[in-house]
């Protein structure tokens, strides 16, 4: 296991995010330790995807500070590219791949292997994409090659591609937004094992899912968002799966709003 020289892989301070009038996030203080797996939980529309899009440079927050590996990030110039350079990888719940494009392009878009004038080294990209498909994802034949269009893939195969991409680019922080949404039990197992690998490799992970069983298995800590606010942060040791479920259900029904602040 590599020794990490920083305390937190990522940290936010008082993040607000507005979409016009809609307040998607408010006063978010969130962090992920250097070798911590955080399960991010919350109802539909709670703001989970919005939060991770801020961490990964897709959205610029309305207000607040961001630290990556304990260093402050200049928000105005922060971008997906910079997040990649800072070794953050993301698998988005959908919208990770472009349907009409070849698979090999989807592996390298945003960080192509290029020659001197910015022309893409197609052969090399295809070769590596093929390796990722065979070795990391375990695609075997089935009529799919690196030249196939994404639109031809099944939901699970697509997830496999985005996850394979994240594995290949090997980051310090890997963000998975509902990575198991379209997967069979077997495939889900692969994803969970991947998260275990991240943990054992000394890296950090944010895992979003509505399946509390999965989250409970892999997380060190649970962070709960509710209507744009971070309402709880619970260590795994402090709670059983059963009480986590009860807690979430009660939150969803708004019964015990202030129980676990």
């Amino acid at each position: 296991m590599e020794e990490r020289s920083y305390k937190n892989a990522v940290q936010t301070v008082e993040i607000d995010m507005y979409f016009g009038e809609i307040k998607a996030l408010e006063g978010i203080n969130f962090h992920v330790g250097a070798n911590e797996v955080v399960g991010l939980i919350g109802d539909n529309g709670a703001g989970k995807s919005t939060l991770i899009k801020i961490l990964t440079g897709v959205f610029t927050p309305t207000k607040g500070k961001l630290y990556i590996r304990d260093e402050k990030i200049e928000m105005k110039s922060y971008s997906v590219k910079q997040a990649h350079n800072l070794r953050i990888e993301t698998v988005y719940q959908d919208k990770s791949l472009a349907e009409k494009q070849d698979l090999w392009r989807n592996f390298f878009i945003g960080r192509q292997i290029t020659g001197p004038l910015g022309f893409i080294k197609v052969k090399e990209e295809k070769r590596i994409a093929n390796e990722i498909m065979l070795n990391m994802i375990g695609f075997r034949g089935a009529g799919i090659s690196v030249d196939s269009k994404v639109g031809k893939l099944s939901g699970g195969e697509r997830q496999g591609v985005s996850i394979g991409r994240a594995m290949y680019f090997d980051a310090d922080l890997i963000v998975l937004d509902e990575p198991t949404i379209a997967l069979s039990l077997k495939e889900v197992r692969k994803v969970l094992n991947f998260v275990h690998q991240i943990k054992e490799g000394g890296k950090a992970c944010i895992y979003i899912s509505h399946n509390t069983g999965d989250i409970y298995e892999i997380s060190d800590r649970f962070v709960i968002l509710d209507r744009g606010k971070l309402v709880a942060s619970i260590q795994k040791e402090e709670i059983s799966l059963k009480s986590l479920n009860t807690f979430l259900l009660e939150y969803a029904h708004g019964l015990k709003e202030n129980e676990k602040q």
Partner: peptide
């Protein structure tokens, strides 16, 4: 293809 995808994969 999809502007949102382009954005999240790092296209400016």
């Amino acid at each position: 293809d999809n502007e949102e995808v382009a954005r999240v994969v790092g296209v400016n």
